[in-house]
């Protein structure tokens, strides 16, 4: 047997992490909680050679408030959020979303930064190597056909993050550290909509902080479709937040390769909203719940969420 070329680096600083990344010949990945990466590695879905552990990067830790933003360090564990007063006060929906992720054990390891970058999922992809060989490899693992749809053009793996829809509804931005410097981008802008490569970010992008605009007095609602109350990825996530002007951002997860964002103006009819959501959310039969049911539930959850925030239609 050949000696494995794999490496694991515990980076101490952002610049060290970047340096290792740039020297790795491209086959690398930053790893934080690892709850996603390690499972994908176990299944043979992630064969990254160089793992760069960022858990020790102080620059990515902590939660601070400035005049305009609540700045949440990317390494904040999902479970920590419920203890943070500023989050409790201004963004309770984020706690609800974070608590909906996985299980209490997962939430103690998984980070907020990692969750928004969570790999897309599909019941035909998140399988062992043997299984994928038996089914005949799908588009997302170098095959030439989508098993879920039979199509050859597009992969419809589901966007799986629960916190991202909530964050997008709250107009979150990401502070990215990249070799060229830092930049601030709206969270929704990093998702491609392509199930094979769902992120538009270069691999060298490191999420440093998640920024939430303060003093917006959001009124929010959150729903996640799952069969059990724990240990579940989403089959449909609906998050909506209404600002002081009565406009709202409605975000769906789990029904498209990217989060589906609808900007709602006060007075917009429910039927129009639902129609648009159903049109934009390209759900396919790649989940334990059927496509038809998930689409039914888009309607139900949008109604329930909009009622909950008193959205005037």
């Amino acid at each position: 047997m050949e000696i494995s070329e794999k490496t694991y680096t515990n980076a101490r600083t952002v610049s060290e992490a970047m340096q290792v990344a740039l020297n790795s010949g491209g086959n690398f990945r930053f790893i934080a909680g690892g709850t996603d990466v390690m499972v994908n590695a176990f299944q043979g879905n992630d064969n990254t050679v160089h793992l760069i552990d960022i858990n020790r990067l102080e620059e990515l830790k902590g939660i601070v408030q400035d005049e305009h933003y609540l700045r949440i360090g990317a390494l904040t564990r999902l479970d920590q959020l419920k203890h943070v007063d500023a989050v409790k006060r201004e963004f309770p929906i984020l706690i609800e979303a974070a608590q909906a992720v996985g299980s209490p054990l997962i939430r103690r390891s998984a980070t907020l930064g990692g969750n928004v970058l969570c790999e897309n999922r599909c019941i035909y992809f998140n399988q062992s190597e043997w299984w994928r060989m038996a089914v005949g490899y799908c588009l997302k693992c170098s095959g030439d056909v989508c098993i879920a749809t039979g199509g050859k053009k597009a992969c419809f793996s589901e966007f799986a993050s629960d916190t991202a829809p909530a964050l997008i509804s709250l107009k979150a931005q990401l502070l990215l550290h990249e070799p060229g410097g830092e930049r601030l981008v709206p969270l929704e802008s990093i998702y491609s909509g392509d199930g094979i490569k769902p992120l538009l970010l270069p691999r060298t992008s490191l999420v440093k902080e998640i920024l939430l605009p303060r003093a917006q007095h959001f009124k929010s609602a959150f729903k996640k479709l799952r069969l059990r109350e724990s240990l579940e990825f989403t089959s449909l996530t609906v998050a909506v937040s209404k600002d002081m002007q009565g406009a709202a951002r409605l975000v769906l997860g789990g029904v498209d390769p990217k989060p589906v964002l609808l900007e709602l103006q006060p007075g917009e009819s429910r039927e129009d909203i639902i129609k648009t959501a159903l049109k934009k959310g390209r759900a396919v039969d790649n989940d334990m719940f059927s496509r038809a049911y998930r689409r039914d539930m888009i309607r139900v959850y949008i109604h329930q969420c909009l009622n909950q925030i008193d959205f005037q239609s």
């Binding site: 694991y8 499972v39 552990d53 299980s103 054990l105």
Partner: peptide
Amino acid sequence: EQGSCGACTVLADGAVIQSCITPAMR
């Protein structure tokens, strides 16, 4: 071995983790 059952739970520096999905090198 996929973080879905909790049988492998241990503490690392006091924090609870599932050891089947935690890289030892970390």
